[in-house]
Design a protein around this nucleic acid. Structure first.
Lengths: 111, 111
DNA sequence: TTCAATACATTGGAGTCTTATGTAAGACGG
DNA sequence: CCGTCTTACATAAGACTCCAATGTATTGAA
């Protein structure tokens, strides 16, 4: 598990891009997908996830639908059209940030 | 100017690596160097810089010396041996973070 | 002589994450 | 059948980091 401070500010981007890649997802599914894709090195806590999902929803980037699974109710999140446009920007911003960091740190990307 | 939230958590790494690359530097010089290397896209505010420098000093990663330039006093920061070892770790952590982010976002590095 | 740049620093507040806690259903072993 | 783990939602208190604003003071150029 590397320095968790670096993750700061990237959670919204992660959530939005996962929804862009996978269509509709529910909260718990997102935490598991992040863990899986990062080989366990990145854990999204629920205390960080749910407030962020609610915030993105209130900003109109996500919509929700509740789906009953037996007695349980899952809350699925989907990108709105605003959300879809926003993801593209966020990913571009992330890439620009990386590029800038490489310049400032004066290191080269290792592939 | 891209999303400033992404910078969160990277400032310490930037400061330490700049000192590793350039030897002794003073605060204002660091802000200018970051601006220069990033082509103006990354601005380190003084409200962020000085508290961070003081923190790194109190953690024993930096030492200071005051140099008089006429009537003005510049405060130069230098990496301690602990600091030098720490930079290597920080840069590795940053690279690992980038790699993880590419996996999670499922995008490829653009060179 | 006034303004911009240099150079240090602190304060208040916003935003983001962590840790802890709470509720409740489903699955599975003993 | 009972405890425990996993699934699944959520909130609250606190820490931490950064930004914007402000303050002081020197230097140099118009």
């Amino acid at each position: 598990m590397h320095s968790p401070e670096l993750l700061k500010g990237s959670l919204q981007t992660i959530i939005l891009k996962l929804l862009a890649n996978n269509g509709r997802m529910y909260g718990y599914e997102i935490t598991q997908k992040v863990k899986e894709l990062s080989d366990g090195s990145l854990i999204v806590s629920e205390g960080a996830l749910y407030p962020t999902l609610h915030k993105l929803e209130s900003e109109g980037l996500l919509t929700t639908e509740k789906i009953s699974m037996g007695k349980r109710v899952r809350k699925y999140y989907t990108l709105t059209s605003n959300g879809k446009a926003n993801v593209v920007e966020r990913v571009k911003d992330f890439e620009a940030f990386i590029e800038t960091m490489f310049k400032v740190l004066q290191i080269s990307p290792q592939l």
